[in-house]
Nucleic acid binder design. Sequence first.
DNA 1: TCAAAAGTGTTCTTATTACACCCATGG
DNA 2: CCATGGGTGTAATAAGAACACTTTTGA
Lengths: 248, 248
Amino acid sequence: MLQLDNFFKSAFTVDNIIFGFDEDDIKVLLIKRKEDPYMDKWALPGYFIKEDENLDDAAVRVLEELTGLKDVYLEQVSTFGDINRHPKGRVITVAYYSLVAIHDYNIRPSRIASEAEWIKVKDIEELSFDHYKILQSCFQRLKRKVRIEPIGFELLPPKFTLTDLQHLYEAILEVKLDKRNFRKKILSMDLLVDLNEVQEGVAHRPARLYKFYESKYQEFLAKGLVFDLSEGKAKQSKAIKKSSGIID
Amino acid sequence: MLQLDNFFKSAFTVDNIIFGFDEDDIKVLLIKRKEDPYMDKWALPGYFIKEDENLDDAAVRVLEELTGLKDVYLEQVSTFGDINRHPKGRVITVAYYSLVAIHDYNIRPSRIASEAEWIKVKDIEELSFDHYKILQSCFQRLKRKVRIEPIGFELLPPKFTLTDLQHLYEAILEVKLDKRNFRKKILSMDLLVDLNEVQEGVAHRPARLYKFYESKYQEFLAKGLVFDLSEGKAKQSKAIKKSSGIID
DNA sequence: TCAAAAGTGTTCTTATTACACCCATGG
DNA sequence: CCATGGGTGTAATAAGAACACTTTTGA
């Protein structure tokens, strides 16, 4: 008869890597800890999972408790459990990343967080615990994911310009993209709605504003199209085209 | 002062999804449990992690203890921790997948496994615990991963024919590929060595044998090339080409 | 001599790249 | 009237897709 008490048990936490986009840079939300270990050091917002709580629910709760953010995109990335990753004993952590439109939310640090601040990913050199490693792993995941699904829009306000979108992709993919080719591609996917509005108060020709057309994305997927802004126009996926007739 | 004992602690396990390839089908290695819960039912090989053991080390150890397999490709996929996933109480599990060339290894079931058997992924309809869900999630991961890195070779014996390789990709990607186009692509990547040997004892024209040229893959990566057999020839990555000169 | 799979090129179509100038606005 | 970023098209190149017949072997 299996008795769980015969096996070692560990504390479990969730850590959230919250990505934002601001002035051409990808940032993450870090908290300054007001609790040992690593008191007064920058860390990812994370805390212990409860006994009666699923992992995803814990990620949502902890995020809200520490930063005030809710209803944001969340995805599990990876689990870190090295024996010595926590100075007080074995603590295994499940890392999640989220995507937030920075200016649409107010951050309210609380609980173990004395401050919370958006910091450029490229300026971060070290963090508490193994959080630097976790950050890198989540940034890699974001980079891959953004080429497969149109999640980048989560990082922009509801109305954005094509240049905003291009800069977002350039920041995530760490590449320079060609303006004309980028526009051709994204518009040909037919996933954006031209709002017939323009920017106000800019000292140059104002840009048109667009929004992401969520429900068209479902049609887009149903047609077997693939979202990839980084290397060209949407292509019909092989799965559909090929299965129709290779007799040779 | 943070006291870990004030927080909920859970038992935690690793589960291994071991993929193999045989007669044009992707298979997974399942064990028949000789221990409750789910005694005599098919399950993924998995067991409890020890107090002084990192997650990856546990995956390696458990795999060997239950199946006799060692020195195989292993990668963490995802963590499953729903409150009720284990009938005896809270058990959080970290899922790994591995890739094995079926005929190069002998399986020796032991510990909690009374039998171990390779079963086609497409024939599996249910498993113990939430293992069916874990399997699906790992298969999705394999599907994505195989297009980005040449890990498929782990599933083949050291010497294989181009048809073997094509069938492998067709099985994983669940697509039919064109023979001539497939050969053109893979050979143009220059990652295979033609061994100047042919199959023996086949009732048709014997095929040439190839092996994967591991060290050439490093050169290949260094040139900024991308491995993708599913949609065409290796392309120079945008990261390298683009950064060189867009002035417009 | 048959069955079974190996091996091999070309053409057409589509996607990707490179690239430069005029436009609208605020200061 | 200047500075700033917005907006636009085309031609050349490269990659992808479609497709059929001859070869070699063992039975």
